[in-house]
Amino acid sequence: MGDFEQRLKGGHPNSLGNTVAIVEEVLENPLLFDELFNCYFSKDEVVRLRVSNAMKRISKANKPIVLPYINRFLDEISKIDQASTQWTLSQLFLQWEKDMTQNQLVQALDIMKRNLANHNDWIVLCQTTETLGKWAKKDNDLKSWLMPHLKRLAKDDRNSVSKKAQKTLNHLA
């Protein structure tokens, strides 16, 4: 973790820091991906936030680099109690939907259901609503589970959460 972890530290917590440069390095040399992935286990919350951003960028640019790690995302990264990790998982699961096995899809669905039912972070709720809403369009059981949660979230005091829930309710109606 040494070099990448050190380079992902510091600066304003909402800035990307050196994330883009590190993503470019990993895209040029995919053998470096494991070192970056292991930065998810840093004690530094900012490092983990930037790793999540890097994962989305790498997956979008060259998904085959990330796909061998799906089980580790499901089994290990999903247990990290950090909002940025959880909202990133929802985005990645949507991106990987056609690449996951049935068991992986079930596990991803369980993670997102748990997050939607129990999380309070507005971005986690919005991103999870986005993915589950799209998946529910093709899955009536998921749709039935999701509808009461969307109705609850449509009454949320935060505009971003309530609007996303209402939009998804309308989409599924």
Rank of each mutant, 00 (worst) to 15 (best):
V106F: 15
L31A: 14
K151S: 00
L153P: 01
N53Q: 15
F93W: 12
T88Y: 09
P64M: 04
T19I: 11
L92C: 15
T168W: 00
L105A: 09
A117S: 11
D141T: 14
R72Y: 12
Q166P: 00
K164T: 09
I70L: 15
E24D: 10
L132D: 00
K79R: 10
S15D: 15
W145Q: 12
Q127I: 01
E5T: 12
D121T: 00
L94D: 11
N115S: 11
Y40A: 02
N120M: 10
T128S: 08
A154R: 03
K60F: 02
W87I: 02
R7V: 07
L31I: 06
S84E: 10
I65Q: 02
Y69F: 13
Q104V: 04
K98C: 08
S15K: 14
R50T: 02
N71W: 09
S90R: 04
A21S: 06
A117D: 13
K79Y: 06
V124Q: 04
E24A: 05
M100C: 09
G10E: 04
N62H: 01
M100N: 12
S59H: 09
S90F: 06
G17L: 03
L36E: 02
V106R: 15
T19E: 09
A136I: 06
H12E: 07
K43C: 05
E76T: 13
T101Q: 09
A54D: 04
D34V: 05
V46C: 11
A83W: 09
K163V: 01
A61H: 08
V161T: 01
